[in-house]
Design a protein around this nucleic acid. Structure first.
Lengths: 156, 156
DNA sequence: ATAATGATAGTCAATATTAGTCAAAGTTAA
DNA sequence: TTAACTTTGACTAATATTGACTATCATTAT
């Protein structure tokens, strides 16, 4: 999954630390130097890979002694997570973000592997086969929300 | 089948690697250069020779460090029935007929109860929420076919 | 206290680096 | 001859990288 470019490598590095600990705190410039990239690339990595959808909370401080802190967040229960996801989806969602959500549901054992794959099949671009991408994203959102709602009450 | 043209040769090259390994990961431009063809020919080869029907799964990423990954998947015994169903569905299907199909999948133990309910949720009129009934039926057909295609093989 | 300075991090848009799509043109085989 | 298949390239889309400019915070000087 990783290792094809610097962003992937930085992502892996941070996640390795997060596998041991609940949070990681870095100094942006140090990480940039460590991986031989510009500081703003760290922001790019965080923005694309440590989103709330994926279960991460990011805080930072500027100025002297500044830092970036990434924290794994834990939603209280499945119901809570499903509600949050439904909110996050809103009116449309692209395939990548949908994958992230399904992955999170699987990681947190809300759904099984086969169910996860069914959902991905149902919401893939190939399946929807709509020319207009905006419409496609809206449809995907509807289907995903429909499924999440179903999961929401099935578990009660 | 044999090396009558470049597409066949590229196909053979990739399949030779896949004979040793479960997956092959390429950089499109490199392969194109290796075989002295335009990059989009690689897409053509993949589209015509590495389909899910033949037991291959393809993933890719664009941008820096991009790649195309081809994976062999194990096709399951149920695939004849699934193929028949896919044919039966055609371009559109109503909710009642979809229910019949899902029921059959459950009866034949291709899917579990939870999975069946999930599929029904994904294809219900409420979820699809399109005004035009014809469009709704077409969309349902696409989703169902997408799901059936994914049931044809075993996932990691 | 307040202002100036230095040390951080954030934003955004330009550029770079890939892969995907599509249709026209060319080739082959029935 | 014609229908299917292959080749090609112009255009599009997605993702990554970079750097100039901005915002915020802590410390020091006035």
């Amino acid at each position: 999954m990783q290792g094809h470019n610097i962003s992937d490598i930085i992502e892996a590095y941070l996640k390795q630390i997060l596998a041991e600990s609940e949070r990681v705190e870095i100094k942006r410039s140090e990480i940039a130097e460590l991986f031989n990239c510009v500081p703003s690339q760290i922001n790019y990595v965080i923005k694309t890979r440590f989103t709330i959808q994926r279960g991460y909370l990011v805080q930072s401080k500027r100025g002297g002694g500044g830092y970036i802190r990434i924290e794994k967040v834990k939603l209280l229960d499945d119901r809570d997570m499903l509600d949050t996801m439904i909110q996050l989806i809103g009116e449309q969602i692209n395939q990548r973000d949908a994958l992230v959500m399904v992955q999170k549901l699987y990681d947190d054992q809300v759904i099984e592997r086969k169910e996860a794959n069914l959902i991905l099949a149902a919401t893939s671009r190939d399946t929807l086969a709509v020319a207009d991408h905006n419409l496609e994203a809206r449809l995907r959102a509807h289907i995903l929300v429909g499924i999440l709602n179903h999961l929401r009450y099935e578990r009660e």
